[in-house]
Design a protein around this nucleic acid. Structure first.
Lengths: 208, 208, 208, 208
DNA sequence: TCCTAAGCGAGACGGTACGTCGTGTCTTCGG
DNA sequence: CCGAAGACACGACGTACCGTCTCGCTTAGGA
């Protein structure tokens, strides 16, 4: 995830990069996002908070965008899928978790911004996919397998990947849209109605 | 839409504002979005393209964000819901239209950017809601009414508004997520699978 | 002298440049030279002292070098050649004046620095010549004419210009070298010995 | 000359400093001066040219200024005073030599720069005096003695030192001023006129 | 012969200044 | 009173050097 992850290519000479600096910078970035939001966040400010020179930031991250992606990505790893006993409860749980994550000011302001930038920046898009998007899909995969184990969904291997991607876009897209575009609360009632809709769709698909 | 919409408050004396200027500025803004994207777009550049002084821009829009919202909003009004004979066909049609709209560089880069800004800017959020979000919901409303007229959906007035909002978030969210976050094509196959899922959900909801 | 001296080319529109700003900047530059010397002087610091934005400096002067030349040039205009009754007294007077000028920290540190830069910067060399060097030669010219009027020097028009230039280089060069390179005081004794040497040379030249 | 001249204080153990490195660094410094001039010369660049680490430079010289003084000083040692048979010819010879030295880009750009710095840096002034200025005076001393031996100048010991210093400032100052400040060529004609003036002054002084 | 203190390359680091750019305000003039 | 032209204060940008620091490796003298 970190830009210095090229572990193999460690040159012999020279002072090694400070490992603590990385952590301090990412933490400072999150703090700055909370206080200032995306558009007011500056590299100089982040450097100051981290007790680090601006040069050090630029030595490790090519741009503000990449820095923010790395700083925020770790928050998405906090999402889990505890077994709540039924597919419905599992979906409701993950949706609420995801909504709570999107309520945090650092994610709320950063996520859409970096996605906006990624429309013009292929490397950034790749980084987002690797750091955030693909890591989320594991939740859908896990949920589906658990539901199949329970017998709630048929063990139908046909185009499981395509379906997983679809489910992922529907869940994540709906929650993001509700929270950020419609700008209305993702409360229990909305989650229940959404889950019901989704389960109905899955059941209908299973019957075919 | 336009900031000069304060039609009543027209000062008596003096030269009136040029109406052509407004159109030229919005057109120039869209052109700049296509060429430069959101983050490289500058007010000075837009003014130059429009053959207008920077002062004139600031006299009419308070910020770059509001200008871009106005410039892009009109594109969303192009969306229509021609009667294709069935709910399924109507949904597929509007999803494809929406996906095509999101493929245009000016919307792709601008939409997420202004939404990101809106998380820290209440007036901007309100402007987005009024100019873009609420205007889209008419499509959901129209589609539901047409389906009810066809008998495809029950004429159930119970919390229709809430359901409409949910459907809106699911459709718009899924398409935006697929197109911009997952960054994968919204092709016919995906649209069919998505529509099938949604219709299944709606049918299940209707049975309750 | 000022960069905005292109009086003829005054465009119609637009806010005119502030005249006070020019004076404040040059004054601030001299103050910074006194406090910090040439190598520690920064454009940002000058801007701060002048109560002006850094941009304004760069809008008017292409480089630190040119700014300093303009700031210091005016000091050289203070040199005068009051009639002291004899060529010897006139020379001693102007040498002491020049030495006093070179004792001021702003000239001491700036003069050699811009000359050093001018060895690699033709426009700067031209600016120095126009702003400083050529303006000094008037003193030699005036002194020679006055001495000729007194009968101390023959009214010999033969290559007067070449001789004036030579005298100028000898006087200015010797004083600068004594003050800055040898770094020893230009006191009354030295001035007397130098003047005697120069007068002897002039008298010898007159006899040929 | 070299900063490592602290010959007495040689610690017992440890690897001695490379002698070739010193030569390579000074050579690289001169090359960089020729190519880049004073203000564009950087320590990193010099290190690169010399095939040496930046650390090695700083271990031996405290600053860019001192390094440049050392690099340039050796060039001034090339000046000689071959016996040309008369005082006039000796002066003309040394002036032409000095002018040729000042034509070299490395001296032209470096000399004035370090002198400018020395106005604010006492140790640097001392180093310049020891490395460059005082070593030049030997030429004046030698020329005077030779002229006295020839009988061209009286063997007058009265304040010989003061006169030597004056002559030194007049010669060196006039040439430097002509070459760098007036920025005009030190050609044969100028040298002859200057020499005639100086000889006249010396002859007049001898008569007193 | 080994030990050991220093030299050395490489290069990351905290700083500081650079010169440019964009924002949003202002001041002038002409229509 | 509008609008163009453009100067202005402000502040962030990303780069370049500075001079210092940590590394791990080399190298010569003294034990």
């Amino acid at each position: 995830m970190c830009s210095s992850s090229t572990s193999s290519r460690r040159r012999t000479g020279g002072r090694p990069r400070s490992a603590e600096a990385d952590a301090a910078i990412l933490e400072a970035t999150r703090a700055a996002l909370v206080e200032l939001g995306w558009s007011k966040l500056t590299m100089g400010d982040v450097a100051g908070r981290a007790g680090v020179a601006k040069t050090t930031l630029y030595r490790r991250w090519a741009s503000k965008n990449e820095l923010v992606v790395d700083a925020v990505a770790v928050l998405f790893d906090e999402l889990e899928l505890p077994d709540r006993g039924s597919l419905m409860a599992d979906i409701e749980g993950v949706v609420l978790q995801f909504a709570a994550l999107l309520e945090r000011p650092e994610t709320k302001t950063a996520l859409m911004a970096v996605i906006a930038e990624s429309t013009r920046d292929e490397p950034l898009r790749e980084r987002i996919r690797a750091s955030i998007v693909d890591r989320q899909k594991r939740l859908v995969l896990a949920g589906r397998r658990r539901a199949q184990a329970r017998g709630e969904l048929p063990a139908n291997p046909a185009s499981a990947t395509g379906t997983d991607d679809l489910i992922f876009d529907v869940i994540a897209g709906a929650v993001v849209h509700r929270a950020l575009v419609s700008a209305e609360p993702v409360d229990a009632q909305w989650v229940q109605r959404f889950t019901a809709l989704l389960l109905g769709g899955l059941a209908a698909a299973a019957r075919t």
